[in-house]
């Protein structure tokens, strides 16, 4: 498993080389969003106010930002679960030209298909470390602040080696967590057996 330092704008070959389990540190210009930006753009037919030909990486995050006399100050930043945005995942990869999504957990089959087709990966943090990232993040501006509110707004950030993240979906259709699930399921059967629960045990169906 290799470590990569990537910078936006990301080229297709930058992400095609990544495999699940690799470590990524991300630099360059990115944008943020959660549920509401997806709904606002895809379900309510607005236009994303971001030049994603250059800013082609997105972070699923709802940061705490504080207004100061000369702009914004980052208080706390920790990627949120991408699983929740699966409904719009494939659309975001295709229409926003995304090459990389940072988010907690992972995404589902449709997004994985789109990532394989268009050349994109999903990476996730393996720690809960909001206070270790302040020095790697510069706030460049914010869009859709009035429409979506501070947490769900589209923050434009410049990153300097933000990470580490592991690649959990690569562009070949593999998913790190799906593969780990298989190992966990095997251990689950052994654990239940060691507890003396019969292999054919099935709970009574009450409803």
């Amino acid at each position: 498993m290799a470590t990569y330092y990537l910078t936006t704008p990301l080229k297709e070959e930058d992400v095609r080389q990544l495999q699940i389990g690799d470590t990524v540190y991300l630099s360059g210009e990115v944008f943020t969003g959660r549920s509401r930006i997806h709904r606002y753009i895809f379900d309510e037919a607005h236009t994303l106010p971001v030049d994603t030909s250059r800013r082609n990486a997105m972070v699923h995050v709802g940061p705490i930002m504080k207004k100061t006399s000369d702009g914004w100050e980052l208080v706390s930043f920790m990627p949120t679960s991408s699983l929740r945005f699966e409904k719009w995942g494939a659309l975001s990869v295709e229409h926003w030209n995304l090459r990389l999504i940072v988010g907690k957990t992972t995404m589902g089959k449709e997004t994985m298909e789109a990532m394989k087709k268009f050349g994109c990966v999903h990476v996730s943090p393996q720690c809960v470390s909001p206070n270790l990232w302040h020095d790697s993040i510069t706030i460049q501006g914010v869009e859709l602040f009035e429409e979506l509110g501070s947490i769900e707004a589209c923050w434009q950030l410049k990153l300097d080696k933000l990470g580490p993240f592991i690649v959990d979906i690569d562009s070949t259709g593999r998913n790190y967590f799906d593969e780990l699930d298989i190992q966990v399921a095997k251990k689950r059967d052994l654990v239940l057996k060691s507890m003396g629960i019969p292999e054919d045990f099935t709970p009574t169906k009450l409803y």
């Binding site: 907690k104 957990t105 996730s124 943090p125 393996q126 720690c127 809960v128 592991i166 790190y176 967590f177 780990l180 190992q183 966990v184 251990k187 689950r188 052994l190 654990v191 060691s194 507890m195």
Partner: peptide, 13 residues
């Protein structure tokens, strides 16, 4: 039992 499952920190093992 749960610690024998190998889920680990942030579910990564």
């Amino acid at each position: 039992a749960i610690n024998a499952l190998g889920i680990g920190h942030m579910g990564a093992g």
